[in-house]
Design a protein around this nucleic acid. Sequence first.
DNA 1: CACGCAAATGTGAACGCTAACATGCTAGAT
DNA 2: ATCTAGCATGTTAGCGTTCACATTTGCGTG
Lengths: 332, 332
Amino acid sequence: MSSRVTLADVAQRAGVSTQTVSRVVNHNPAVRPETRARVLEVIGELGYRPNTVARSLATRRTMTFGIVVPDIGNPYFADVVRGAEDAARGLGYQILLCNTDQMPERELTAIEAFQEKQVDGIILCSTRIPEEDLPDTLRTHTPIVLTGREWVEGAVGAVHADDDRGLLLAIKHLLQRERRNIVFAAGRPGGPGHARRMRAWHEFADSAGYCAEQLVAIPCATNPAGGQEAASQALRDNPEVDGIVCFNDLVAIGAVHACIEAGKRVPEDVAVVGMTDIALASLVEPPLTTVGHAKHELGKQAVAMLVDHLASRAHEREIVLKTELVVRASAP
Amino acid sequence: MSSRVTLADVAQRAGVSTQTVSRVVNHNPAVRPETRARVLEVIGELGYRPNTVARSLATRRTMTFGIVVPDIGNPYFADVVRGAEDAARGLGYQILLCNTDQMPERELTAIEAFQEKQVDGIILCSTRIPEEDLPDTLRTHTPIVLTGREWVEGAVGAVHADDDRGLLLAIKHLLQRERRNIVFAAGRPGGPGHARRMRAWHEFADSAGYCAEQLVAIPCATNPAGGQEAASQALRDNPEVDGIVCFNDLVAIGAVHACIEAGKRVPEDVAVVGMTDIALASLVEPPLTTVGHAKHELGKQAVAMLVDHLASRAHEREIVLKTELVVRASAP
DNA sequence: CACGCAAATGTGAACGCTAACATGCTAGAT
DNA sequence: ATCTAGCATGTTAGCGTTCACATTTGCGTG
């Protein structure tokens, strides 16, 4: 029956001031052991629990972070959120969650709602807010860390995977296996990560002396349906296609389906490489070769950065997490 | 630059009292249109944003629900949380998330932390708090809705899927396909849903006149590894096994692997049926036949129940969501 | 033309806590 | 005995809202 017991109730019963009780609750050492014991006893008797809303009003800290993701149902973001929550919990912070389905207006609404709730910081994952609006959005007193994209003016920092190198790993892997007609199912143009991956794609094409035609990038939705569509289009345009690199693993799964539908064997006829290595990747048939991301770590680092910032501790402006090629059956 | 602007700042600048500004912000009709316009203008100029922490202290409502799940990385709970957040957002509520990895102490800690944060309600998913401790835990002023298990004294309500019937559907499906040596990979004894599914299992065995030996239930961890272990044990004990029903889809995926490892073909030699129909189920090879759960709906209903309760509206004490058999290749 | 009534606005106080300072007390130094 | 450090505790004033009431204003009525 822990109900409406306040500091004052405890103070009165224990015969001390509210301030002393507050000190006990907050582990302030400046309390005589006997007094502390007495207060703790009364706290136990009365079942007192501090009211963090009142505490937050007084301290101007809520010990809460908000995290904005496109969709927690997407295993990628589930892992990122999990990492963030683990780190936050360890540091005494709690996590407010908001899904936006990649709708910029909903991202903005979420940020404002979080700010009104006085969160101590916000983690904005793979935002779809247009590049040009971002600085304005970030120009606020609430620290914001970005994930899945580069740092931009106004943000406390950014945490993302090394997609450039990841993409390179994937392409090189395919080239070494004598794949010569490689296609990139590139995700949504304008979407987070798209520009970076495209840049890497073209840089590589140039440096390797490839003629542009040999490296085709096809925009697509970042889910199985998008991958299926992109892959079947690619195979229609050029039946010689023997390698597909995908924006993420969900796209790759769709691409695999498209190949099979088109009568191609994976990996014999077409090798498929995914990205991010979600749990799913090792469970589908064939298991996906993929460029692994440290998703859990991503969430953790985002929280760590926020906490460092709040403590006025120096920290990187941008953290780039290593990617690694995980070779499975879809591109052995 | 939306910083520390308060109601008082707005009031002073607009030449009215804080109360009037408060009325405008809260859409209280008892304000002259001209006054309202003036106040709104100043709010715009100053970039005022209400401080919900202060508001919550005064109103004793935080417009926040806490949700406790074993692991958001598990696609089942990701869907439930997504459903809850969707419903909550639509009603102006926000969601605090906590993962517990099925550790009862962490569930208790989470509940307490949420209470200190004065959440308006808690959704406790598939709790592993021992049956006998549950009433004490629930005996609190914060409304708690349970999911994934039956209602228990003290809870506002419970929302869960009709596993009894679901399990029946699975078994009957296998029997109709002339499978005669059926095994149940039953999940963790004492875990949520375990008792209910076991009861259904035995009830069916009795009613169908089966001798107990023909329906074996094997406890296992509720993940692919658990399923793999349980299935390989079952096949070792009885090579005749031709049907495996699984606690959930992750277990089913493990069971499929075990079958293949043991040289059995799925579904020709052994038919495998999963439960809950996570997105993964249709993407593995072979695609899983499974008993579908309305996961998104589960989260939604939990929130709806909480909101009804807070509004002192009548509501069911227990909502049982229908399950349906989704037939795919693993048990055609 | 005073009267009363409703609509519009204002006035404390409260929500439960902490920050910052003030006070009282004990004990060692002088 | 007196002074003074320094520890333990108390006091006061917010934190930014809303609540419950009090007050003012405008307007139709007898």
